[in-house]
């Protein structure tokens, strides 16, 4: 092996690697520049904090989805799951007010039950796909419908509202700041760091990648495939419950329209971030950028009159399609041939 050969090999690979990893970051920077040009208030401290806070929900859920998708699965139920958890959490807290009052205990009971519900719901999705051997798409399509109808049933078609006695105690979780950053942003940051470590530095993350790229190889490599795959859904459930905990104090209510389309936004964030939809390659960092990009588009549309705010979905859809087109494996070589 000559030094020249080594160098040229590395160079070619790094070039391709850079385009793919840097893509989402470049897109986000471009969006910010566009936002600033359209309205300088876009980069104001208040707007940035608002933007980060809003991306926290989708971001946290999308980090969970990164694991599911990397391991070759998909979870369509996250939006409904968030709504159902929010509903049950509100019911539990409202009844806890009678015994524990409107203090911290009630909020902790609510948060605790949210986490248990999230873990449980994720576990159900996982067990049905692995032990039940039903395709993830079908399982989570089913649970998506179930959770959505459950929240409608609990709210009796209307809205479940949090008892005003707890609102005061719970409100700061969404609205307060800690060292200059809103609390949801801190949660998002912590989940991001833990998610990155889990995917890139532990055996679990390695196993997710292996299962996603070739399940048969994983089986022959002594990986407990069913357990790892179930774990990814449990992590997804946990992320949903964390997102719900910081979401509930925002409006203090849950209804049939809570969390609608969150599953698609979460999946979109993951894919925009460079994770491969069919599994085998995942990027937590990319997912975070993906979530930020999606929220930024909505934010910019709110700021300007050029494009109607109602076209938010159109812009997000275009971004998703363009992102995936840019990430296509042969894009680099096709481009090179042309020039």
């Amino acid at each position: 092996m000559t030094a020249a050969a080594t160098n040229s090999g590395k160079k070619g690979q790094q070039m391709r690697f850079d385009i793919k990893t840097a893509g989402p970051a470049i897109a986000l920077i471009l969006l910010c520049i566009i936002g600033y040009l359209l309205n300088p208030a876009f980069l104001s401290e208040g707007n940035l904090a608002n933007l980060l806070t809003r991306s926290a929900f989708i971001g946290i859920i999308a980090i969970g989805a990164t694991f599911v998708i990397t391991a070759g699965g998909i979870d369509l139920s996250v939006g409904s799951m968030a709504a159902a958890i929010a509903g049950v959490m509100i019911i539990i807290m409202n009844s806890a007010v009678e015994t524990f009052g409107g203090g911290v205990t009630t909020v902790l009971i609510g948060a605790g039950s949210s986490i248990l519900l999230g873990l449980g719901a994720g576990w159900v999705n996982g067990i049905l796909t692995t032990k039940g051997k039903i395709e993830a798409f079908i399982v989570t399509l089913g649970t998506m419908g179930i959770y959505r109808s459950l929240v409608t049933y609990f709210a009796d078609g209307g809205t479940l509202s949090l008892d005003f006695a707890v609102r005061g105690t719970y409100r700061p979780i969404y609205y307060d700041s800690f060292i200059g950053l809103p609390i949801p942003v801190w949660v998002f940051a912590v989940v991001s760091v833990l998610g990155w470590l889990l995917l890139n530095r532990t055996a679990f993350g390695r196993y997710c990648t292996a299962i996603g790229s070739n399940e048969a190889v994983a089986v022959y490599s002594a990986i407990k495939v069913d357990r790892i795959k179930t774990m990814t859904y449990v992590i997804q459930g946990l992320c949903v419950s964390l997102a719900t905990i910081i979401y509930v104090p925002r409006l203090g209510s849950a209804s049939a329209s809570t969390g609608v389309m969150w599953e698609l936004e979460a999946i979109a964030a993951v894919i925009i971030g460079g994770t491969v939809l069919k599994g085998g390659y995942g990027r937590v960092g990319g997912t975070i950028l993906g979530a930020l990009i999606l929220t930024t588009i909505g934010n910019i549309l709110n700021f300007t009159d050029i494009i109607s705010n109602y076209l938010n979905g159109t812009m997000q859809g275009l971004i998703i399609i363009i992102a995936v087109w840019l990430q296509r494996g042969d894009w680099g070589s096709a481009r090179r041939k042309k020039t």
């Binding site: 190889v217 994983a218 990986i223 390659y281």
Partner: peptide, 18 residues
């Protein structure tokens, strides 16, 4: 190819997987 190695991954990842 189908059960032994992750063809899209590098050697290090394949070597230590088991």
């Amino acid at each position: 190819k189908a059960k032994g190695l992750l063809l899209s991954k590098q050697m290090r990842l394949n070597l230590t997987l088991l």
